[in-house]
Simulated assay, not measured.
Amino acid sequence: MSGRFEAEKRGVFNDGWTGPATAEQGAVQLKTQLYQELPKQVLTKNQSPDVPFDRSVNPYRGCEHGCVYCFARPSHTYMGLSAGLDFESKLFFKENAAEVLRADLSRKGYKVAPIAMGTNTDPYQPIEKQLGITRKILEVLLEVRHPVTIVTKSSLILRDLDLLQELARLNLVKVALSVTTLDRKLARTMEPRASSPQRRLDTIRQLAEKNIPVGALVAPVIPALNDHELENILQAIARAGATEAGYILLRLPLEVKDLFSEWLSVNFAERRTRILRRLYAMRGGRANDPRFGHRMKGKGIEADLMRQRFFNSARRVGVNMSEGHDLDCTQFIPPQNPSDRQLRLF
């Protein structure tokens, strides 16, 4: 799939010279390609009433996890790349993110509020093990005593337990694991390179044991595919130690609509029509409803029932549905520029 801004479109076509392609020949072998990005700013602001934060930092563009439903896929088309395989394999990393964040936080008049990580692509996707950009950002935030929230699908976050424990001791961090399904086979089909459901539950457990505030995000909920697991997922994350929970109905913006529909045709052909019909019904007859107040939860009878199921089950298992304690925004110590630190020597 080509980007929607491109003048030319690319596609696979069998011209008959080599005969029909076999399944083995048609298999795509993904090889991650990395591209350095040196932004001048890394704090992204938003005014959406649908999310509990107004600023975020994303160390990476694109994501190796390969989740077919990812709403961030269309952002790759702004780079002249596809929302499909390019999004999963052609990744941009912001090598200087920690240094630029330090500069952003040192700006005169900066007002503290929690910085969200993992809002677009996963800050703990596999390349983080090699590059360590997320860890460097956390080191800066700990140094200046700045609150942060993190959403991830990866057990790699346990690598940074030392930083997370110290941030938690100062009431400066909350973590949420995205748990989409408890079915290992379904997870591998939907999220081929993310941690398994059991690894995510184990990660919740280990974070909770270290007194790091941890919750879970049941996202996305897909009618006729994983919606029947809602109660079981909430019970599992509560047993693992999660104290907060939230959910998001599947969103299919722009290129994601066709990618997801094609994926259903290949993997769940017998359910494709039913899944899309129910989803469209909760989206006012469309694949995606971008309006504030509707895009996360949908509307209509089934959307209302889903909301009731979630809240009743969350109450029953004892998670407080994202209404936990607030992070401390009073400890912030503005970072000093290197030149300022040099002047202090005299």
Rank of each mutant, 00 (worst) to 15 (best):
residue 258 D to L: 10
residue 39 P to K: 06
residue 149 T to R: 03
residue 268 F to G: 01
residue 219 A to L: 10
residue 148 V to G: 00
residue 238 A to C: 04
residue 226 N to G: 03
residue 235 Q to D: 15
residue 64 E to W: 02
residue 88 E to L: 01
residue 41 Q to W: 07
residue 190 M to S: 00
residue 245 A to L: 08
residue 332 F to A: 00
residue 253 P to W: 12
residue 181 T to D: 01
residue 165 Q to H: 00
residue 237 I to A: 02
residue 327 L to R: 00
residue 103 A to C: 07
residue 180 T to V: 13
residue 112 V to I: 02
residue 150 I to M: 01
residue 72 A to W: 12
residue 251 R to K: 14
residue 331 Q to E: 05
residue 318 G to A: 10
residue 105 L to Q: 01
residue 86 D to C: 12
residue 110 Y to W: 14
residue 64 E to R: 02
residue 24 E to P: 05
residue 241 G to D: 09
residue 95 E to Y: 10
residue 141 L to M: 09
residue 219 A to E: 00
residue 206 Q to S: 07
residue 42 V to L: 02
residue 106 S to R: 02
residue 41 Q to M: 10
residue 194 A to F: 11
residue 264 L to M: 08
residue 196 S to I: 06
residue 9 K to C: 09
residue 338 P to N: 04
residue 183 D to I: 11
residue 23 A to T: 03
residue 250 L to N: 00
residue 266 V to I: 15
residue 201 L to Y: 09
residue 33 Q to L: 14
residue 215 G to Y: 09
residue 114 P to V: 09
residue 176 A to W: 14
residue 256 V to F: 07
residue 115 I to M: 04
residue 97 A to E: 04
residue 270 E to P: 03
residue 310 F to M: 03
residue 143 E to H: 12
residue 25 Q to L: 13
residue 22 T to F: 03
residue 14 N to Q: 11
residue 38 L to T: 08
residue 183 D to F: 11
residue 59 P to E: 03
residue 145 R to G: 07
residue 233 I to D: 04
residue 196 S to D: 13
residue 63 C to R: 01
residue 189 T to N: 05
residue 205 R to W: 12
residue 24 E to S: 11
residue 214 V to T: 08
residue 78 Y to M: 07
residue 321 M to L: 08
residue 175 V to A: 01
residue 21 A to W: 07
residue 248 I to M: 05
residue 243 T to G: 15
residue 6 E to N: 14
